[in-house]
Simulated scan of single mutants.
Amino acid sequence: MTTLTETERGTGAGRETAPGLLARAGWAVADSWVVARRYLFHLVYKPDELVGTLMVPVLAVLLFGFVFGEAMGAVMGAPGEEYREFLMPGLFALTMAFGIGNTTIAVVTDAGRGVIDRFRTLPMAPSSLLVGRSMADVLSAVVDLAVLAGMGLLVGWQWHNGPLPALAALGLLLLLRLAFTWIGIYLGLVVRSPEAAMKFFSLVFPLAMVAETFVPTDTMPDWLVPVAEWNPLSATVIAARELFGNTTAAASDSWIAQNALLMAVVWPLVLLMVFVPLAVRRYRRLSR
């Protein structure tokens, strides 16, 4: 006859003890960080991927800030530097959205090369591969935002409400990137090739353009305004502009625009609640 330990008597036979749960949680965090470092080192050794990611928003700063910016700013009544202040929060969010493409391609490439299968054979927490991927993407997004912020300062953008609201705005942008990362992870586990992943990435462009990224929604056709306002990207852009103090144009009087700070938190959480379980379920089915 077996004898129960004191901890087992308190929790019931067959149940996991609190120290056991803490140990497993610590194990999962440590394994996730190992996976995240693997992806980050990959960026260090192959910086062309990071440079390629930054090319689009940096070119957008130059094109929309100086080439098209005067005309677009004139329509808004915010020429030159005023329009660039309006533009930069939109480009920050645009960069977070474009991260879907990098995540999807990286995951589908790892799956095609058998990297995911090799990780699954190691004695590591089952969740660490996906969590580590998301950690690496969010950390790389910090670098993206730092580069873009530096670029913005060079062209006349600045924040006006102090450091704490600015940090809150960056936090909302990173929360959006985290949600998009899990969308990219799920798509990377579903599609069969990087070429197919690029087709999904093309869908990001309408998402980015039909939003508050470049112009206010009230300048769009009436039938398009509700679509743009309820775009998750728009809520984060409007909230970031408010926190940075870059509200050159008056916000719409719709409910979604007036509650942008709330929705900038709600939208990413909703996306996470949808795509984290989908990605985990798809990951578990890979071995079947």
Rank of each mutant, 00 (worst) to 15 (best):
I116T: 11
A235K: 01
M72L: 15
T5L: 07
V225S: 10
L170S: 02
I105G: 04
T2L: 15
L122D: 03
T53H: 14
G80D: 03
P163H: 10
L272M: 12
A239H: 00
L286K: 06
G162S: 01
G150D: 09
V58K: 03
A18T: 15
P206T: 01
A28T: 07
V143F: 11
K46H: 14
A179H: 08
P89L: 05
R288A: 15
N259I: 07
A257K: 09
M135V: 15
T53D: 11
R38F: 12
F201E: 12
A257F: 05
S193L: 08
V191D: 07
M263T: 09
R15V: 13
L272C: 09
W255Q: 02
Y283A: 04
A211N: 10
V67N: 09
E195I: 12
T95K: 01
L122T: 11
L63K: 12
R38A: 12
A30C: 07
L187A: 14
F66R: 13
A240K: 06
V265E: 08
V266T: 05
G14L: 10
L62P: 07
R120Y: 05
A240V: 10
T247N: 05
P79F: 02
L262I: 13
T17C: 00
D218S: 14
T3K: 13
V67A: 15
S32D: 05
T2F: 15
L94C: 01
W33D: 03
A141H: 06
P232T: 00
V227H: 09
V215Y: 08
R288Y: 15
V142S: 03
T213G: 02
L50E: 03
P165I: 10
T103L: 02
A168V: 14
A235Y: 03
P79C: 10
S202Y: 12
E242I: 04
G10H: 14
G184T: 03
V274G: 05
W267T: 08
N259T: 13
S140A: 12
G80H: 08
G73P: 03
G156R: 03
A97E: 01
M135R: 01
R118A: 06
M55G: 01
T109M: 01
R284Y: 13
L233V: 11
P277G: 11
V237N: 05
T7V: 13
R118F: 02
F180Q: 00
W159Y: 15
V210M: 11
I183Y: 07
M220I: 10
F180P: 05
V147F: 00
V108E: 03
R177G: 08
A146V: 14
V61N: 04
A36E: 03
P123W: 09
M96C: 06
V266S: 00
T109D: 02
I116R: 01
A239Q: 04
F68P: 10
L59N: 02
T5C: 00
A141W: 02
G171D: 03
L59H: 07
L154F: 10
V75Y: 08
E70M: 09
P163T: 10
F180G: 04
F275I: 09
L271C: 07
V61K: 07
R177A: 09
A23L: 14
L63F: 15
G99V: 04
W267C: 13
V107F: 05
G65P: 00
G69T: 05
L40N: 08
V56A: 14
R281W: 13
M198Q: 15
S134W: 04
A260F: 05
L50M: 14
A18M: 14
L122C: 07
E6W: 12
V266G: 09
D48E: 13
T104D: 01
